Simulated assay, not measured.
Amino acid sequence: MKPKVMLVEIEKEEKEYFRKSLRKDVSIAFQEEILTEDNVEKYKDELKDTEILSVFVYSKITEKVIKSMPALKYITTRSTGYDHIDVEFCNKNDIIVSNVPVYGENTVAEHTFALILSLSRNIHKAFYRTARDKFDLVGLKGFDLKDKTLGVIGAGHIGLHVIRMARGFGMEVLAYDVNKQPFLAEILGFRYVPLDQLLKNSDVITLHAPLIEQTYHMINKENIQIIKKGALLINTARGELVDTEALLMALEDGIISGAGLDVLEGEALILEEHRLFSPELPQDSLQKLVRNHILLHREDVVITPHIGFYSTEAIHRIRRTTVKNIRAYIRGNPRYTVGEKKNRSKDLQPV
């Protein structure tokens, strides 16, 4: 009997790809809606015999959600980050978790520079102005990136692509990362520095770190004060890396002259409108929504709806890797595993 896979957060046009690619290996069920504790009961009949679960970043796979799937043995997320999955609980219950470690380093890096250029040349302001048939230049003076300093927090796959692009613009680059690669720093022409030094000396700061306990609110009320006055802050990683209250304060006080955000703290709530009217909505969640609403209406902030990964090429790579992950699990050789179970997988080359 074929194992059952449930693919959630699936767009209509994706179904045919997965159906065609996996029909020989598994029985398939689809769910377009995100999966959370709030709606897991709704799908309990479909989930009870699900052995393989495929999710994206907006589904919150908590202990309660996992317990509703007694047959669950494998979760594969169609993303690099996996903070939306209770990996610790999975490890304790012998459930394997895999991710897509490489799919769009260049894709996210390109979007990072789209946000940087939108702010540095006031493209967002100019667009709205010309849309109203106004062509004056007042308030639209920008600045060159050449000879400016870019601070890259997280010099992994995506961060290194950003660094290459920055050097092409003629920028100086500082990087902060716990895992240093001195040879690459020499080849690409950047310097590793402590976080405080990066914040004090960068004209543009861009975040490419994973969301873990140590990086939660790594930009906060204390260190945001030392950022070079007038710098830009860009976040295409995870919203929770930045304390939104601190960001609003820094924008209001002129410490930061602009922010480019593809991710927001608590952004999942924006997608779950029904939760806004729940009496059980935590006070801190409501505060996050209010702060995000304020950010949305600031002229010095450019917000995109988590589309840094969303290119034709990157989506194809995500789908292809997800199919290969599922097949590898079925063959008994799961790959790209995360958490304590990662040692059981072969170290295969990214696709």
Rank of each mutant, 00 (worst) to 15 (best):
residue 223 N to K: 12
residue 159 G to N: 10
residue 214 Q to W: 03
residue 239 G to K: 13
residue 224 I to T: 11
residue 208 H to L: 06
residue 215 T to W: 08
residue 204 V to G: 01
residue 203 D to N: 14
residue 248 L to T: 10
residue 239 G to R: 14
residue 145 L to E: 10
residue 227 I to L: 02
residue 169 F to E: 02
residue 207 L to V: 04
residue 154 G to R: 04
residue 233 L to D: 11
residue 216 Y to D: 12
residue 178 V to N: 11
residue 149 T to E: 04
residue 184 L to Y: 13
residue 146 K to W: 04
residue 207 L to K: 04
residue 175 A to K: 04
residue 190 F to L: 07
residue 239 G to Q: 12
residue 210 P to F: 10
residue 207 L to R: 06
residue 149 T to S: 07
residue 147 D to F: 07
residue 164 R to P: 09
residue 216 Y to L: 14
residue 217 H to L: 09
residue 179 N to G: 02
residue 192 Y to Q: 10
residue 233 L to C: 11
residue 193 V to W: 00
residue 230 G to L: 05
residue 162 V to R: 00
residue 160 L to C: 08
residue 247 L to A: 13
residue 235 N to K: 05
residue 202 S to C: 06
residue 187 I to T: 14
residue 174 L to G: 03
residue 186 E to P: 08
residue 174 L to K: 06
residue 188 L to A: 03
residue 204 V to Y: 00
residue 184 L to G: 05
residue 166 A to C: 06
residue 149 T to Q: 07
residue 212 I to A: 09
residue 235 N to E: 03
residue 204 V to L: 01
residue 248 L to C: 11
residue 160 L to G: 09
residue 227 I to S: 02
residue 242 V to D: 09
residue 225 Q to S: 12
residue 180 K to Y: 02
residue 202 S to M: 04
residue 192 Y to I: 05
residue 198 L to H: 00
residue 176 Y to E: 11
residue 155 A to E: 08
residue 240 E to V: 05
residue 196 D to M: 01
residue 239 G to M: 10
residue 190 F to I: 03
residue 223 N to S: 06
residue 194 P to M: 05
residue 157 H to A: 12
residue 244 T to S: 13
residue 175 A to S: 15
residue 249 M to E: 15
residue 193 V to I: 06
residue 164 R to N: 13
residue 149 T to H: 08
residue 173 V to E: 00
residue 198 L to Q: 00
residue 195 L to I: 14
residue 185 A to Y: 10
residue 157 H to P: 02
residue 163 I to Q: 02
residue 212 I to E: 07
residue 214 Q to C: 01
residue 189 G to N: 03
residue 221 K to S: 14
residue 213 E to S: 14
residue 161 H to Q: 15
residue 145 L to F: 12
residue 214 Q to K: 15
residue 196 D to N: 14
residue 231 A to R: 03
residue 168 G to T: 09
residue 177 D to T: 06
residue 216 Y to A: 08
residue 238 R to S: 11
residue 242 V to Q: 08
residue 147 D to W: 02
residue 220 N to K: 10
residue 181 Q to P: 02
residue 205 I to W: 00
residue 174 L to F: 15
